[in-house]
Nucleic acid binder design. Structure first.
Lengths: 192, 192, 192, 192
DNA sequence: AATGAATGAGGCTTCATTCAT
DNA sequence: TATGAATGAAGCCTCATTCAT
């Protein structure tokens, strides 16, 4: 099995799998379909991945790692708590759009992961959410957001994640508007 | 096949299916498992439902019909736009908790429906969302919410729906707090 | 799955499997071939047996149970130690010929059993061998066979078992001759 | 492919294959496992052997050639018919113990050989058995063994071959005792 | 001699569904 | 309504073998 987990080729295969899992669902996507779309034979798939499940893991992991990276970069350039919150929301939307397939898969196919894989990804998710926790905490310290045991943070993240259900980048709504409205809601502001 | 779609027995079976589909996923739950949990043989299942897929449809439909009913009742007793918005959010949370299984299934297994079934359920969903649209419109007319092409409504509904991912009724958070915070965010209020 | 382990139908299937496993080997015999020879579809096989391995177990177990039964019956009618020894050898040869398939499979495919199955069959085998141990012990007490820690017993049983490799019932050698010669060798006699 | 069939390297590989085939069975041992134990990659294996099956052939052939060699040497030093019979039994046991892997494989995996390979090995086996035939014949001429169309020879060889099933060199029984008892049984003697 | 990715046929097993009882 | 044996298509995965490097 090809152990080079970050090879260009592998990343391509993961992207293709992400698309298929997103479109058809993990259980419904057959190994043969995966292979066909990748331009290889079904047997060859198992040189790259131990399991069908390992492909699922790779898809979700790649989405999460990317999300983390983008969030970190976005925060580097932001200063005030509010700016940082805004940057984070923007970054979140960016990955959601850029790696939509992977994130949709993460949401829908979480259950199909093995316990071990899931445990590993839970760590990643916790790491990501702790970034949000931190930024929200800064906002609280600055008196911008009430201390509500993370309630607003959870609602906001939920609202963001749910956007994959309805948001289409080719619609009239710009991502910036989305992020702005989200921040407004979090901070208890109304544009009126 | 039992044509009496609302028979007590059938509703029991649907509830059992909802639980299994929610816990294990639609694709992963076998007809045999369904039958076993229902206390019958797998062959007998097909006297109650034409298809495995029809069971899925019944599960989701029942959740949606229930949601609609609860929403309508809640609105009957509410007067001002804000009260009505609050009542709606509360009602939404209620079904989400009461019929959690069915709603989780609706979210996760939407894809496994046949086109025909999906079309029918889309109608139901649209009917439900139009209730929200209406109430939000009333709030806009009252100057409580900005006119943003449904953006806030969508974010709010997303935030609510996402609660099935993390909200546990046995935790410290009461559903009322959730509904209140949600309304606050929608209306651009901060408890600070 | 059909739980009636002694049904006529099941015994037929086991006999067919025995023949195939004997002729082609367990690993080499495919489930599809098994099913085809049984006149059913490959999927139907799994109503009767949980596993391919369970078929192997059933084949070997049936051979062993039969061997035990025949040995017990033969001993009922024999009196003196030597008669009993002779009856036992004769009985052993009988099963070896009657259930040749099953016994060949037992010898060759022992390794393919699961640990659990093997443990169960080891008990059966031990029970069978203890019959031999007993009869040989009677012969020792009667001064017919030396006490050699079971060495002659083992050599004799080995010689018998090996007959499946070369003995053909349609040859010039009668089973009785075989049994007689075996007993002669065990008792240290020569026809000269 | 390496045409030097007797190269040191090749003999090593054959010995490793013998061990694996003996422990896991021919069908169950994968080419990858073979290669791994040999310290090479699976592709490289095919530079040494045309086929997986050719490895099996090499294993069995080597065991047989060795057996023949040891038998011939043993007979060189023996004089009387009985001495020669004893030497032969002793030699047989020696190879059975020395090359246990190869002989076990010969017994169990005979079926997996191609017809061509099998035919070649049948010649070797016949050559070996004719040595036994000869020595037994000498014993017959000397009045030590009855003329029974090879029945005692076959039983004796079977008893010997079967020893691989139960004999362990680290047990209380010495190979010499085994050989002696075997000869006694063949010649119709009892130590009593 | 060696590598190791790729092949592609084929293996075991599962599963929704049917149908005679 | 209920049963449960049978179906047969399809799923995931393995494995001996090849071939360009």
């Amino acid at each position: 099995m090809n152990k080079n987990k970050n090879s260009k080729r592998r990343q391509e295969l993961v992207a293709i799998a992400a698309r298929l899992f997103c479109d058809q669902g993990y259980e419904t996507t057959t190994v043969r379909t995966l292979a066909a779309e990748m331009g290889i034979q079904s047997g060859s798939l198992f040189h790259h991945f131990k399991d069908k499940q390992e492909i699922l893991f790779a898809v979700i992991e790649s989405g999460m790692l990317h999300a983390m990276e983008i969030a970190r970069q976005a925060l580097c350039e932001a200063q005030t708590p509010e700016e940082r919150l805004h940057a984070l929301a923007q970054a979140h939307l960016s990955t959601l759009l850029q790696d939509r397939d992977a994130h949709v898969v993460a949401i829908y196919e979480w259950r199909s992961l093995t316990d071990l894989s899931r445990a590993h990804l839970v760590e990643l998710r916790d790491a990501y959410e702790s970034i949000w926790r931190e930024v929200i905490y800064e906002c609280q310290q600055a008196g911008l957001v009430p201390d509500d045991q993370g309630l607003r943070r959870r609602l906001a993240l939920g609202a963001l994640n749910w956007t994959v259900q309805w948001y289409r980048p080719d619609g009239p709504l710009r991502p910036e508007d989305l992020a702005q409205t989200l921040v407004d809601m979090l901070l208890g502001r109304s544009p009126l």
